[in-house]
Design a protein around this nucleic acid. Structure first.
Lengths: 246, 246
DNA sequence: CGCAGTTTTGATGGACCTCAAAGACCGTGG
DNA sequence: CCACGGTCTTTGAGGTCCATCAAAACTGCG
């Protein structure tokens, strides 16, 4: 891993400044964070942490995607979270990682040494309150995903994943999700299968089926086009107007 | 619902005092909570909140069990959390409930009006830090459950649920989980199915199978006996020594 | 007893998994 | 330039686990 790219970045110009754990910090609080922060870079496929590892840092995803996953002895694995820019890695108050963290794409994270960060939590309320809010959001997302895993058909699972990625892509680019929109699909079939609780063959078949039905189309292998968003959403099985804040 | 039972309880004698959101409060902070708290009781089966409802309160489960669940238009439902004594209901900073909350057994909750509670969060750090810790724990549990939903077989799912209930029962009674232990099974087959992402018939069949294999036995319809804990745990598919803190 | 709710058991079918092989994509090196 | 291997993806054939539909057995209660 090269450790250079982001090293000289000022918090003020950080792309995730407005959404990350530091979002509510005052300038003086930011200065403190600045003193304990450092960047790390990982290539696609590299592990960041194994379950059980000592964690000497907590971190924010700055760029790229990481996965949080669990593996059983016989090799069955389940992804339990997708970490996108501004998402938080690690947990104050616990020393070892509960899950594997792997860089899905090339990845840059902004690390804080754990002890200083934990002290900041007790001294600067703005970090604690933002972290609580982010954790509550993560919990809601995890629970929504439980419905996908427990009750949806393979086709609905694929549609749900594409809908989520489409929404996140739109929100990252700060433009609304519209008909005809396109986005990069940053996951292999296997990673999608691990996220959805399916096999990679089933994922492939269902994507082919959605393509054949005209609900999506692919540009190259990694770019998805959604001609009519409503039609994709109908395939998710969800209430059309239900719940999620975009 | 009768609103009497717990009304005169002092926080000092509260059975969940040491584990709930108020666990770290100093006596003066507890006084403040005391002023905005009130108890509610529900009978088994009664709804506490519907998804989308305005929440005028947050609460702690004092006694009994509640479920957190989601239902699709066609009736498929997935339980996304089991709320046991000391667990927290609601989330500061959001006005409407994201999921249905239903009393599974007879239920008593300790409510705090939402606005005063949110103010306490900003003024007394002991509540915020405890809530953050509880939320992080909930998030870990939710993610562990995602492995169950996404990757485990029906038999492993049942064994996992029984193992969890056994552990929680042991920790509630403050004695270790041992061979020969017994506990109440507070869920109907249908509720178990909704938690596990199965049908009630499959749940029934797998319980019969575990019984036939001598891995569990039932006393009456609601009491489960576990002759050898190790053997049950082996059926969960998990690493025997893996992760969980009891 | 008789009824409603819950649980068990049986028979059947289908959605998804497993195993297998061929095809597409991409970088490397002759 | 094309051949070559590696990785990822697609497609096919067959089998299995669990859902579905159906009915009987059990439980508790007026």
């Amino acid at each position: 891993m090269n450790e250079i790219a982001f090293d000289s970045r000022e918090c003020g110009s950080c792309p995730i400044r407005h959404r990350a754990v530091c979002a509510r910090c005052e300038p003086d609080e930011l200065d403190i964070l600045n003193n304990v922060k450092y960047y790390r870079n990982y290539e696609a496929g590299q592990p960041v942490l194994w379950a059980g590892d000592q964690m000497e840092f907590v971190a924010s995803v700055v760029k790229g995607i990481a996965s949080l996953s669990q593996t059983m002895e016989d090799g069955r694995t389940q992804m339990v979270g997708l970490l996108l820019p501004s998402d938080f890695i690690g947990r104050p108050g616990r020393d070892n990682a509960p899950f594997d963290v792997v860089a899905v794409s090339d990845l840059t994270i902004c690390c804080f040494r754990k002890r200083p960060f934990e002290e900041l939590l007790t001294t600067t309320p703005h970090i604690g309150s933002r972290l609580l809010e982010m954790t509550l959001d993560e919990l809601d997302s995890a629970r929504e995903w439980m419905l996908v895993l427990g009750r949806k058909t393979a086709r609905e699972k694929i549609a749900s994943l594409l809908a989520i990625l489409a929404r996140r892509d739109a929100s990252l680019k700060k433009r609304p999700a519209v008909n005809g929109m396109a986005f990069e699909l940053p996951l292999t079939r296997e990673a999608m299968a691990d996220y959805l609780g399916l096999t990679l063959e089933t994922v492939s078949r269902q994507i082919s089926a959605l393509k054949k039905a005209g609900i999506i189309s692919l540009e190259g292998k990694r770019r998805v086009v959604i001609p009519e968003l409503e039609i994709l959403l109908a395939e998710t099985g969800d209430d059309v107007d239900g719940g999620l804040i975009p």
